Amino acid sequence: MQLLIVTAHPETQSFNFAMRERAATVAARVGAGLSFSDLYQQGFAPTPGRADFQDFPATQSFDLAQAQKAHQQHGGFALDIQAEQEKLEQADAVILQFPLWWGGYPAVLKGWIERVLSYGFAYGRDKTLPAKKVLLAVTTGGIADEQDAQRSQARLQAMADDVFGYMGWRILGLHLVHGPADLDAEQRAEALNSYAERLRLWLSEAVPLAA
């Protein structure tokens, strides 16, 4: 199995990157291949537009979905989009690793969704990308109580369903870590171990565990 980890956090010393590294360790242990997209560190541009295409006529009216479909059929996506789509083509499963900011995806990850999961490629009647498995691994700033935790879970499920459920991807699960900045070293280690065990179970659905 080939696993793509897409991380959307500006700080490599963050808990999000600690989760990314733990996921890579687990994936290696179950025999999965790995590729990475670290969107902030790559300088990935989140805003879709004419620059998404190498030869879009400056005088032509711009319709994003139709432009994506036409370029999927005839080629000519911008190089950064091509690189991300090639990673997706090779992947069997995708982990999206990100903080929940203002109740949604970070802007750079939302832009990755809009630019890379393009019409004709990832969705649409004649899409070329086979459906993938996806895991959402997410941090929040914290929760007030159990009801607040349930609201965060429901919000994240809706976010996953709106994009990946719509495209027909299999959502293997959601994993939330609340308030990692407030955890001490022992609690952080426990949270990472809990994530690793859950991830091991998720990935074992797609590939036998290594002996």
Results as ranks from 00 to 15, higher is better:
158 A>Y: 14
134 V>D: 05
154 A>M: 14
173 G>A: 13
140 T>F: 11
83 A>H: 10
148 D>H: 14
17 F>Y: 15
63 D>H: 06
7 T>D: 06
140 T>G: 09
24 A>Y: 02
158 A>F: 14
180 P>R: 08
57 P>E: 05
183 L>S: 04
10 P>C: 08
182 D>E: 13
82 Q>F: 00
135 L>G: 03
69 K>I: 10
133 K>S: 15
191 A>I: 07
111 G>T: 03
68 Q>G: 01
82 Q>N: 08
67 A>Q: 01
87 K>H: 09
7 T>L: 01
119 Y>M: 08
10 P>F: 07
174 L>A: 10
127 K>L: 11
105 Y>N: 02
57 P>W: 02
134 V>H: 04
70 A>N: 08
84 E>F: 07
55 D>H: 13
165 G>I: 15
43 G>M: 01
12 T>M: 12
89 E>L: 15
79 L>T: 15
180 P>N: 12
192 L>M: 05
72 Q>V: 12
168 G>K: 12
102 W>T: 08
103 G>N: 11
60 Q>H: 08
15 F>Y: 09
11 E>L: 08
78 A>R: 06
34 L>P: 01
39 L>M: 03
121 F>D: 02
21 E>Y: 01
171 I>K: 15
189 A>L: 12
114 E>I: 05
31 G>T: 01
22 R>W: 01
179 G>E: 11
23 A>G: 11
187 Q>R: 14
42 Q>P: 00
27 A>G: 05
51 A>G: 06
88 L>I: 02
118 S>W: 11
66 Q>L: 14
190 E>V: 01
39 L>Y: 02
113 I>S: 04
100 L>N: 13
119 Y>G: 06
157 Q>G: 12
123 Y>R: 14
140 T>W: 09
62 F>C: 02
108 V>H: 09
208 P>T: 13
84 E>N: 06
135 L>M: 11
186 E>V: 05
10 P>T: 06
168 G>P: 09
179 G>W: 06
143 I>N: 14
105 Y>C: 01
5 I>P: 05
34 L>Q: 04
32 A>Y: 07
210 A>W: 03
116 V>A: 10
146 E>K: 10
91 A>N: 07
83 A>G: 06
193 N>E: 15
107 A>E: 05
132 K>D: 12
114 E>V: 10
113 I>N: 10
159 M>Q: 15
72 Q>M: 10
84 E>D: 10
115 R>D: 12
80 D>Q: 06
133 K>P: 01
48 P>E: 03
207 V>T: 15
118 S>H: 09
137 A>I: 11
19 M>I: 00
53 F>M: 07
47 T>C: 00
1 M>G: 08
5 I>H: 08
81 I>Y: 14
4 L>S: 08
131 A>P: 11
205 E>I: 06
71 H>W: 01
68 Q>A: 08
98 F>K: 03
186 E>I: 00
20 R>F: 04
95 I>H: 02
156 L>G: 02
